[in-house]
């Protein structure tokens, strides 16, 4: 197809409009967070007071702490299991290889709300509630496909002879894992840690079923607050959530790359 000036122009305009549609609401939200008066756009001044008010709201401070802790635990456990699952899956060559892969990926295809409801039902029946571990477990379930997929993709090109070489110079399998395999998988492990953290940090659907007053996460606290108050403080909190996620993703991109599967071996 011949590229015409009109076509190119339309293409650029369409792209700009598309991103505007995606990002404009966020931009407006962020702008509103600096508004000294009310949740209106354009802002009628500039203030950072809404950001400071979090210090006067222990509920939010606690929620931020809960979200951070939950995010860190989710990232560590989800990525840990994900790495092990991917390594094990790559080595396994039986009939169940394909079904296992589908099973591990299934949280991606099942609506999170259904996963959460099912977990809630089971935990309720077992009487295990009011417990951060149920929340961590639930977050792990919905985030684990990402580390598995990342690490599997990198394992695809992984040469087992690199491990055999370690064994041949006297490394036990565990030493070979720590000294050769895991360092080589760094390019998929680090993005996995960040992505699972961000997913956990932003999660609402699963948390809403399983959180309790001790472990109310930031998105839940925000939603609860919104029912009674509608002021720029909410926008400020949202901005914090957005900025934290963006910073993490930029850090990953700058260090190991978001693809996470750059061939380095």
């Amino acid at each position: 197809m011949q590229k015409t000036l009109l076509g190119t122009t339309l293409w650029y305009v369409g792209t700009v409009l598309f991103y505007a549609f995606l990002l404009a609401p966020l931009a407006i939200l962020i702008a509103v967070s600096f508004n000294p008066t009310a949740m209106v756009f354009p802002p009628q001044g500039f203030t950072l007071k809404w950001y400071a008010t979090i210090l006067e709201k222990p509920d939010f401070l606690h929620a931020a702490w809960a979200s951070t802790l939950l995010g860190i635990m989710t990232a560590a456990i989800s990525t840990g299991f994900g790495v092990l699952a991917a390594i094990g899956w790559q080595r396994y060559s039986g009939l169940l290889k394909a079904p296992i892969s589908s099973l591990l990926m299934s949280p991606l295809f099942i609506p999170a709300v259904i996963v959460a409801l099912a977990l809630f039902q089971i935990l309720f029946m077992l009487g295990i509630v009011n417990n951060i571990w149920t929340l961590v477990a639930a977050h792990v379930v919905v985030t684990i496909p990402y580390p598995i997929r990342n690490v599997m993709a990198q394992m695809e090109g992984f040469d087992v002879r690199l491990e055999e070489a370690a064994l041949s110079v006297g490394a036990t399998p565990r030493q070979a894992l720590w000294r050769v395999t895991l360092p080589l998988l760094k390019a998929s492990i680090i993005p996995s840690l960040i992505i699972t953290f961000v997913l956990s940090w932003n999660n609402y659907t699963v948390s809403v079923f399983l959180a309790n007053k001790d472990w109310t996460t930031l998105p839940l606290q925000l939603r609860a607050y919104l029912q009674y108050e509608y002021e720029p403080f909410v926008a400020a909190m949202s901005t914090i959530l957005i900025v934290a996620s963006v910073i993490l993703l930029v850090v990953v991109d700058r260090t190991v790359g978001l693809g996470g599967v750059k061939k380095n071996n």
Binding site: D159, A165, T172, N265
Partner: peptide, 20 residues
């Protein structure tokens, strides 16, 4: 005996050097 207990030196076809 597992590999790591046998006193062998092994050279692989593709060298299998650790890239990192």
């Amino acid at each position: 005996d597992p590999v790591w207990k046998r006193k062998i030196g092994f050279v692989f076809q593709n060298f299998a050097l650790w890239p990192h």
